[in-house]
């Protein structure tokens, strides 16, 4: 574990907590894409299949449970909780996210490190996470300005994988044989998708107004 990866995990945890805070306390999911949340639930479900078969550390297992639990509970809240569901913007959240799942699965079947069930699904989760934010970014453009909590959520979610890139650079130079092109390219694509959001976020942040 290095400082970049720890910072990345904490940023990711913070993004999830901000979203749960927003949904649980003010019972609102305005501006949040349910489709992105559903994709993230699939990402964690397919990435952490080894949670019971391979133990890395208490920290690792704990964080996996947090991300699994939070992503599924956010989907549950947005789908079935009356008060929260009422604030869900169904008309605007129309990105065909299922069209992202199949190409990622096909790509994982073609490009992976090992052709085993767990490895292919793990690779699929990497490709899917890279594009999972698209429905949210599209919704963002449609709903114009969003509240600060949603803006912070997206900022933290985009930032965590950027910190992971620093972690991969650090590990590449400090650990022999640490080369994982698939993870690196997927992580880079994922972070680059946030580029224009980051641009507007910093513009608004510097201007001291909400994210528009």
């Amino acid at each position: 574990m290095n400082i970049f990866r720890l910072a990345g995990d904490m940023t990711h945890l913070a993004s999830v907590l901000v979203l749960l805070l927003k949904i649980h306390t003010i019972k609102s999911c305005a501006g949040v894409s349910l489709r992105t949340q559903e994709l993230y639930a699939i990402v964690f479900a397919t990435r952490y299949l080894d949670i019971f078969t391979s133990f890395v550390s208490v920290y690792n297992t704990f964080m996996k449970l947090v991300f699994l639990g939070s992503s599924f509970s956010i989907v549950w809240y947005m789908r079935y909780h009356k008060a929260v569901h009422r604030t869900y913007d169904r008309e605007q959240d129309t990105f065909r996210h299922w069209f992202l799942v199949l190409p990622c699965l096909v790509l994982a079947l073609l490009i992976h490190e090992k052709f085993t069930f767990l490895e292919v699904l793990w690779t699929f989760s990497l490709y899917l996470e890279a594009v999972a934010i698209l429905p949210q970014l599209v919704l963002l453009q449609r709903t114009r300005n969003i509240d600060n909590l949603t803006g912070q959520y997206i900022f933290l979610l985009g930032g965590y994988r950027g910190l992971y890139i620093l972690n991969w650079i650090y590990r590449y130079f400090t650990e022999p044989h640490f080369v994982h092109w698939i993870t690196w390219i997927a992580g880079l694509v994922q972070t680059l998708l946030y580029a224009d959001f980051f641009y507007y976020y910093f513009l608004r942040f510097i201007g001291g107004r909400g994210v528009e």
């Binding site: 995990d9 080894d50 890395v56 690792n60 991300f67 992971y164 044989h177 640490f178």
Partner: peptide, 10 residues
């Protein structure tokens, strides 16, 4: 050796 690196990252 390309030992199947244990997935220690989240």
């Amino acid at each position: 050796p390309n030992k199947s690196y244990q997935k220690d990252e989240l």
